[in-house]
Structures are given as structure tokens and as C-alpha cells.
Design a protein around this nucleic acid. Sequence first.
DNA 1: TCTGGGGTCCTAGGACCC
DNA 2: TCTGGGGTCCTAGGACCC
Length: 459
Amino acid sequence: MSDRTVPGVMHLDLDAFFAAVEQRDKPSLRGKPVVVGGTAGRGVVATASYEARVFGIGSAMPTARARRLCPNAAYLAGRFEAYRVVSHQVMDLAHELSPLVEPLSLDEAFVDLSATRDDLDVEQVTRIAERFRADVRARTGLTVSVGVAATKLVAKIASDLRKPDALVVVPPAEQEALLAPMSVRKIPGVGAVTGDRLIRSGVKTIGDLAAADERELVRMLGKAHGTALLAYARGVDPRPVVAEREAKSVSAEETFAVDLTDRRDLGERLRRMADRVAARLGASGLSGRTVTIKVRRYDFSTLNRSRTLLHATSSAKEITQHATELLAAIDVADGVRLLGVGVSGLSEFSQTDLLAELEPERADGADDLHDLAEAGQEGEDETLESPQPYGPSAGAAWRPGQDVTHGEFGPGWVQGSGAGRVTVRFEGPHTPVGRIRTFRDDDPDLAPTGPPVFTPELP
DNA sequence: TCTGGGGTCCTAGGACCC
DNA sequence: TCTGGGGTCCTAGGACCC
């Protein structure tokens, strides 16, 4: 475990990650504004390239607004397969530094450098971190910002301090002076609501927070949040770097292009989302006892309804059954904007699941305390790859950014589509800027592919 | 400007048990 | 007949993160 007087915690954060992978793989986008996220009507920005940020575009902004701010940016739907490959490469490099790597998302992780070394000092961690950053660049072609400090809190703040492509090491002795003048909003966990509450009560900086009264903070923010924030502000952060945390829930949700009111329509979508959740549970050998649905209404108010079973399940039919019953009790007449299904209270594959797998015919549930509820009344068997007859991606067989290949022109990517046409630019990570061609969107020579292979330059 | 999708953690109240 | 305190589980909602 890390010693709080030694700069042993490293935080890594890939710069504008999704957009950077797109620019790497699409030469025509290098140096240009690129926005990755939901491209349909109700989409929001996941990542904007630094060139796009100049126009005021940032994460979580509605894409419609981003388009007004910068109509000429490239708007791409995202290629998570490609992002996962890169993320893996970076996490592998992190594991070369320490066995204690805690991923926070595809593009962020903590690494406990002190797990394998004693007596770390500022010079040593600087060397380690700079070599790591060079390795990431050579292996993936991307830049990563890194912060190193004695605690998670300070390491994370440090990695953000001089982004992009920067290393900031905070010697423990300088930590307090660094934090004190910063806005309380810089503390991860202090968002819009907590930030406003603090600022309205006169607590603007981390220094102010460190001097605040604990009882007052607890009254304002609750026990856990109040005491934790006060400790952070005073430089106290005992959280260890924890490798491999187990998943606590699995869910799927969808925001519709237009609000829905039709129960059959909603039920069908609920069933498809339950299929996806069940497939993911099955793939990771998990099942769960609590089924939850989420309903966001036309006015953005959000309801959750859940039910805890006597046994754990990963069955699509069973999840659908319970989710459908939960939905039946909700008034949808005014319009549903988003619908979701989740399973929590997870455990490793349960007995019932094994039985169901071994004896698919038998559903008598004799050994089952709960009413197994003879789930699928329609008797219809769920398939994982059901076609999507409607939805926000209606008719959008070609998504912007998608990798494709053409019989005559070779590999490329979709720039845009509509009105029966697809526009493709033919280029890859190691080609010059490519030519553009437009095809009928049912051109038999055009086919989707996986991501292009990025090969690092050899030393 | 009009708000994604995948998660985590916390709080509060009520049921229930000892 | 009235009144305890603590612990756990469940449900619902909300803040927050990337």
C-alpha cells in the first residue's frame, strides 16, 4: 500500500481519446475539429478534439449545439471496438509499471508505483512516467497526460493541470500550496450541485474548504460526502489503488428520437434491451437478483422501478418478464423519452442458470422457490442479433466514421449518408489524405469492416 | 442549448428481526 | 400495554464520473 509521504500514485488520462483515435486512423482529420458522440437529434458530445474545443465544444454538450458552433467539424458516431483495442494496449503498458492498475474508464487509470518499489522520489517517478508516456506514443500513436502524487486525488488533479501531452509530478511537500487556491469544482466528486452549494455558502477554493466546519459540511452535503471532501481538502486521501473491481450492475438504455407512448412499442424495445443485458451477463458468467427499469419522461423527470427476486437470473425471458411487469405500472401516456433495463445484485453464474442450460426443455422450477413465471408467453425465442426496424438509427445502415471497404477503391470510412447515398473517404492510418467517392447506399461493392490496423513505428 | 449511455456511491424511509 | 435500539434488506431518488 502506498505511503502518503511518497509520490507513488500515478494517474494517466489519454488526451481527447476518442477524437484522437479518429485523427490517427483518418489522415484527413488531423489538425481539424473532430467531434465524437451521438450524431442523431438527441445526441451529446462524448469527446471533442482540441481543434473543436476552440469553438467552445465540450463533453456532454448536445451535438445539435456543437453543430451550430462549428458546422464544419467532422461529426462521428464512434468506433468502440477500435477504442477498446487502444485502451488495452495502454493498460498493458501500465501493467509493466505495476501489478496494481485501476482502470476508471477506457482512457483513464490509476497505477500504484509504490507497489513494487520502495523509496520512490520525484526524480525516479519523473523518469518512470516520461518513459511510460513515450511508450504509449510509440505503441499507439497517441498522447497521454500523467499526474503523479502521493494520493489519488492529487494525482488526478495533476494529470489535468497541463493537458494535453503533459506530465505533472507533485512533491508531497508542495501539495497543500498547489491545492489551496484551486476552485472546489476541481475536486472529482464536486459537480454542479455540490459546487453551487459550497460556493453559495462562501466556500470557493479548496483552501476555504480545508478551513470549513465539519458539522456544517455534513449538514449541507451529508455524512459521507461532507467528511470525505473535508479530508481531501486537507490533503488526506486514504483510498488505495484497487485492481480489478467487480461489476455491480449491468444495464442497457436508449433515448428515442421522438418520445414514445405506445405500450407495445415500448415493450418490444424493453425486450430487446433485456436481450442485450442477458447476453452481456451470460458472456461474463454473471447473474443478478434485482431487475430495474428506468423511465425518463417527456419532461426529463426520471423514474426507477425495481424488483428483487429470490434467486439470481441471467435469462433474457425472465428479465423481460419482470421488466415488463414493472413498466405496466407506469403511466406512459405523456411520452417516454428514454427506457432502460438493468440487473444488479450480481453473483457468479447461479444454479438455475446451469440447470436451464443443461435442460432447456424443463421449466418446472421444482427446485425454485420463486415463481419462475413461465416467462415467455409468446414462446418466441430471443435472438441476439435482431434487426432494428426503427429507432434513432432508423435507416442509418452507414454511420458516420464507420470503417468500410470497397471492391474497387479499398479501405475507407463513411463521411456521411442520406437520401440513398453514402460518401466515403478512402484512406487509412498510414496513407496520405484520401479521395472522396459517393455511392448508392445499397452499392454491393461496399461493406462494413473492423477498424484498420495501426502499426507502431519501429525504433 | 435542451440535455447519451454506461456505470458508482450515497441517503432516507419502511419492513422486519432480535 | 407500551416502548427500546441496532442491524439488514429493499426501494426510490439523486449526484456524479467518463
